[in-house]
Write a protein that binds this DNA or RNA. Sequence first.
DNA 1: GCGTTCATTCTACGGGCGTTGACTGATGGG
DNA 2: CCCATCAGTCAACGCCCGTAGAATGAACGC
Lengths: 192, 192
Amino acid sequence: MTEPTARPTRAQQRRLTEDRILTAARQLFAELGYDRTTIRAVASAAGVDAGLVMHYFGSKDLLFARATETADDLGEIGPGGATEALLTSLGQRLTDEPEASLAVLRSMLTNADAADRYRTAAQPQLDQLTNAIPAPDAALRASLLSAIIHGVLAERYLLRLTTLADASPDQIITLLRPCFESLTTTPPDHPA
Amino acid sequence: MTEPTARPTRAQQRRLTEDRILTAARQLFAELGYDRTTIRAVASAAGVDAGLVMHYFGSKDLLFARATETADDLGEIGPGGATEALLTSLGQRLTDEPEASLAVLRSMLTNADAADRYRTAAQPQLDQLTNAIPAPDAALRASLLSAIIHGVLAERYLLRLTTLADASPDQIITLLRPCFESLTTTPPDHPA
DNA sequence: GCGTTCATTCTACGGGCGTTGACTGATGGG
DNA sequence: CCCATCAGTCAACGCCCGTAGAATGAACGC
C-alpha cells in the first residue's frame, strides 16, 4: 500500500501549483492593484518561475481575470428584506474580506477591462436588488446602496482610514442600518 | 503702446507652461490613475518635452503632488448643520467635479503614497466633521459619511455605473439626506 | 521499457518607463 | 551691447516589465 501523501500525481501537482499562483496573485492584486503587481512577483511569491505563470494562464490579463473570478451572491431577497440581506452580506465582507473581492475593488479603478467585467457581473445582483425596492427610482436607490457598500469597503481596506479600519463590523452595521432602511423603503407619503 | 497680447514675459511664459502641464496632469491622473499616467503622456498633452516636466517639477511624484493639491473645504459647520454642509458640498461635487479632486480620488484608491497623502490632508476636515456630530462614536460616523461620499463619487465618475452617472444631483441628494441625517444625529434614546 | 507528454526553468527579446545631462537659442538686466 | 539666465529640446541611460521559446527532466500510457 502506497503512502497516501506520498507523491502527488501530475494532475494534482498542476492543480496545486495553479492554486498557489492564484492565491499569490489575489493577494498581490488586492494589495498593489493591477499595474504594480508583476507576473514575476506573483511567480516568486508562489515559488515558481514567471514563465510558468505565463504557460498556465496565458497572459497577465487572463491571470487577473482568473484571480478575480468571484461569486458573491446576495441570495434570495424576500420583499422588504433588502435591508437585512445587504447588511448580512456587508457583515460578511467586513469580517473576513476575501482577497478576490479586494482585488476586484482595487483593480476596477485602474483596469478598464476589470471595470467592464465587474459591471457585467454585478448587473444581475443590482437588478435583483432593484426589484426588491418598492419605489419608482428603485434602480438609483440600488446603485446608491452599492456605492455606499463599496465606499465603506474601500475606505476600510484600501484607504485604511484608521477609524473605519478599526471599527467592529457590528458598530458599522448598526450605524448603517437606518441608512439602508431609508434607501430600501419609500417614506410614507405626506406631500407638500 | 505695445500690444497687450504681444509677447509674454519669460515669467509669464513659464507660468503658462506650468499651468498647461498641471492641467494635462490632472486630466490624465483622473482618467488613468497614477501608474498608467506617464510623464511622457502628460508632456505631450501639454505640448512640451518630457524633460521639461522633470525640469519644472522634479519627479513624477512631485508632479502628482502639485497636480492634486486641492483645498476642498466644508466651510464652517454650525452645530447640527453637518447634514446640510455635507449635502451642499456633495451637491457641488456632483455638479461640476473638478479634475484635481477626481485625480485624488482615483489615485488614493490605487496608490499607497497617494493614500497616505490624502489621509493626512483629509484629517482636519474629518476632525471638524467629527466635532459637529453629537455622539460618542462621532469619529466613526464621520468616517462613514466620508466613505459614502467617496463611494458615490467613485461609482459616478470613475466606474461610471450608468444609473448613478445619469442621475441628477438633486435626486441623489434627496435620497441621501435621510442617510446623512441618521449618521449626524443620535436617535432619541429608547433603550431595550 | 520506451517514447511521449508535460511541469518547470532559463535566457533573451523588445519596449516603455522615469530620469539625466548636454545642448540651443531667445530674454533680459547692467 | 554683452553675457548670464532660463525656457525648452534631444538623445541616451539603466531598469523592469510582459512575453516567447528552447531546454530539461520527471511522470505516464502502452
